[in-house]
Simulated assay, not measured.
Amino acid sequence: MSQDREPFAGDVLLDLAYSGRLVLGTDEAEARIAELRRTLAFGYAQLADPDFDGAGDRLRELLRELPKYVEAFQLATKSFTPR
């Protein structure tokens, strides 16, 4: 990976969620998950577009990584306790 690219953090978020250190309220998590799912749908549409001439490899990496974010945010709501 070149130095100008930031690594994805899906595994980090999952580790934090499994350990109970990533905690989100249900509304916040649902909003983030909805945004991620829209991003995934857009990304798959881009790859399916025969005229797409963007960075396909990077997009494929993103599409493999984003489901980890979704899972982490789903897990994060299980640790949430309103104060």
Rank of each mutant, 00 (worst) to 15 (best):
D11L: 10
L13P: 00
P50L: 08
L14A: 07
Y69N: 02
A9M: 13
L24G: 00
L63T: 05
G25I: 00
P82Q: 01
D4R: 08
L13A: 08
L22W: 06
D53M: 07
P50Q: 09
R60P: 02
T39P: 02
V70R: 03
P7N: 10
L13Q: 07
F80S: 01
D49S: 06
A55K: 07
Q74I: 05
E65L: 08
G56T: 14
Y69T: 02
R32D: 08
D53I: 03
E71G: 02
A45M: 05
A17L: 08
D49M: 04
E61Q: 15
R64Q: 14
D15A: 15
L66G: 01
E28A: 05
E30W: 01
E65Y: 05
F52C: 04
G25Q: 03
Q3C: 01
L66R: 12
G25L: 00
T81R: 14
A41H: 11
K68W: 06
Q74M: 12
R37L: 11
A34Q: 05
T26G: 04
P67L: 09
D4Y: 09
D4C: 03
A9I: 12
R5A: 07
G43H: 05
L66T: 08
A41F: 06
I33S: 03
A76Y: 00
G54L: 03
I33G: 01
A72V: 11
R64G: 14
K78H: 10
L40D: 01
Y18W: 10
A17Y: 11
E30T: 09
I33V: 15
F42T: 13
G10W: 04
T77A: 13
E61H: 09
P50S: 05
G20H: 10
L75N: 01
R64S: 14
E61C: 03
Y44A: 05
T39Y: 07
Q3Y: 04
P7E: 05
E35A: 14
L14D: 11
R37E: 15
A45H: 10
A76Q: 02
D51M: 06
L47R: 06
